[in-house]
Design a protein around this nucleic acid. Structure first.
Lengths: 338, 338
DNA sequence: ATGAAAGCGCTAACAT
DNA sequence: ATGTTAGCGCTTTCAT
């Protein structure tokens, strides 16, 4: 039989109410009783029943973590790391994290994740871009949501975002400082807020350096932001332009695709073309040359997201925040002085 | 206020006991009452409170999913897919899945996952190789465990395994049928049951074909089974042997490493060397040539594991099973007739 | 076939 | 500062 609060009370010679107060760190308990109770708890290896606790407090003790399946299954563990950050942060606390995926083509006909229907989560973290109709349907529910790595125009909910604009600026400045003037930009879905912002940073850096933003140096119209399209866009960029000496790829995947195109065509990186990526994704060490990129603290994103939901849960009045997680330039061997 | 069983009872004009019986599919309810209650449930959008239910039934309604962090963060989403299988299978049911990672160097000093300490899971799925001391400490607890993709000598617990021996045989036979006779084997940690079995399949296939198992063709002594070591072992294999025309790599990662070595040294695949991998891992389509490999149904592994825990939970007497999930040869372009 | 009622382990309001 | 007690929403005997 599992140890209950009664056993602890009996063992410590106090009432169950006292034990409860101790568990919940109530201040109006004498430190002596507290110590006594704590000792009993330890001796009996007591852990409060979550269900009993949840039942009376009308909480569930769970946080839902939601993302699309293709994000979860991305070759590079980007969102997995964000989740791990959340899970790490949750470990010391009182919440469990329920991870679930939705199809990336989630429609009105699809039903919401079960933990939402069954009201089994106190709050939800939504990671990455998810279908708008999903968001709309969750937002009408009275449940705190934190968006991580996806900016929405939804009010009243917190966001944890990568500082993409700043990252775009830093990456571009890096190339400028190396003497590059003809810098191409390859990006995927420009309607995606993150890519849009990285592109914005690119333009701002160029303008600040009094350089023209040459439209023919910009290719950002593919649906997916992946290696294949990195290959395709690098091809287009270089076939339509002469004198390009550097490329800013809106993420590492596209950068890898671009590098493959260059390798296939005998163009040397970084000797002939410098490349900067974005994300600092884990990738096999065999890839050469190692990519200069903007490091994103993925775990940090997940950690902050978790803190924000909990903050909201503890104090429902806490206002919606927007946290920008800074990025860091990691110079490796794919960029070089012109 | 959330709808409770009382509301449903009132709405349907029955007692809460009746509603409960209907929910739990009890047979001794007249089909008419049943229909009536079901309608009320739907109308009121009623979902039973998990905490109340769990409290009285002394269950938690949760399944724990455990793996090491480096498995979870593997570049190729192998274990993520297994998890997704479990999560998919859990969707229609009554369980939630709690995913947590442990450090791959988990020691006696580290504390067990919180959901185990707090007894918040009814059963546990352990995916992939985990530290033995972790297993030992969990096994003493009275809680059903299912191991997936990791064979242990623990009795009383079910296993869901890849049919590695058969896979090794099929892969090797494929090369034999293409006329190859000098087939190298590169593997990582040979103490890992999966790799051991794939190697076993390799040997069995050769013996069956009346070919010698040449020890100098076998390199299987690295700690990690990854790309880097695939590169290293391919180098050793080819530097120490002449006449090798094919390589069976114990997993795709090593195969990729080997291919990289060959490319770096101007050896053409499949013209000069054929390569077979194992796992059929998602990888960017740019990798050339596409790898011939043994397909493993990762989702299927997770699905079966979930079914086995639930089976054990429903019927504690159900005996420990060992399920072998079959593999399938996927012929792509890295193998060729000699 | 259905209902009444006890009780799961806990929290919180109230009493002392 | 600590104890008493009602009740959270459900399942499950036991009556009817």
């Amino acid at each position: 039989m599992k140890t209950t609060i009664k056993d602890v009370a009996k063992h410590a010679g106090v009432s169950i109410a006292t034990v409860s107060l101790v568990i919940n760190n109530n201040t109006r308990i004498s430190s002596e009783t507290k110590r006594k109770v704590l000792r009993s708890i330890k001796t009996l290896n007591y852990h409060p029943s979550r269900s009993a606790r949840d039942l009376v407090s009308k909480k569930t003790g769970n946080i839902g973590f939601l993302l699309t399946d293709d994000h979860f299954l991305r070759t590079e563990p980007f969102y997995s790391k964000i989740f791990l950050g959340t899970e790490f942060e949750a470990r010391d606390g009182e919440y469990y994290v329920l991870l679930t995926t939705v199809k990336s083509n989630f429609t009105k006909e699809d039903s919401l994740p079960r933990f939402i229907l069954e009201k089994s989560v106190d709050g939800i973290i939504i990671a990455g871009k998810v279908p708008q109709n999903l968001i709309d349907r969750i937002c009408v529910l009275e449940i705190p949501i934190v968006f991580v790595d996806y900016e929405t125009n939804i009010n009243g909910h917190s966001h944890v975002l990568i500082d993409n604009v700043q990252g775009g600026i830093i990456a571009t400045n890096h190339l400028l400082e190396l003497g590059h003037k003809n810098i191409g930009f390859i990006g995927g879905d420009i309607n995606h807020p993150s890519i849009h912002d990285r592109f914005l940073g690119y333009k701002q850096a160029l303008e600040k350096a009094n350089l023209n933003v040459n439209p023919s140096h910009i290719f950002n119209n593919t649906l997916y932001t992946n290696r294949q399209n990195g290959y395709v866009l690098a091809k287009k960029l270089l076939e339509h332009n002469e004198g390009i000496t550097a490329v800013f790829a809106c993420n590492d995947a596209m950068a890898f695709g671009a590098m493959q195109y260059l390798r296939d065509n005998g163009i040397k990186v970084p000797d002939e073309i410098s490349i900067v990526g974005f994300d600092d994704v884990d990738v096999d060490l065999l890839l050469k040359p190692p990519l200069t990129t903007m490091r994103v603290q993925k775990m940090e994103l997940g950690i902050e997201a978790f803190r924000l939901v909990v903050e909201k849960l503890k104090n429902n009045n806490s206002s919606a925040k927007k946290i920008l997680v800074p990025v860091e330039l990691i110079v490796r061997e794919s960029t070089k002085q012109l």
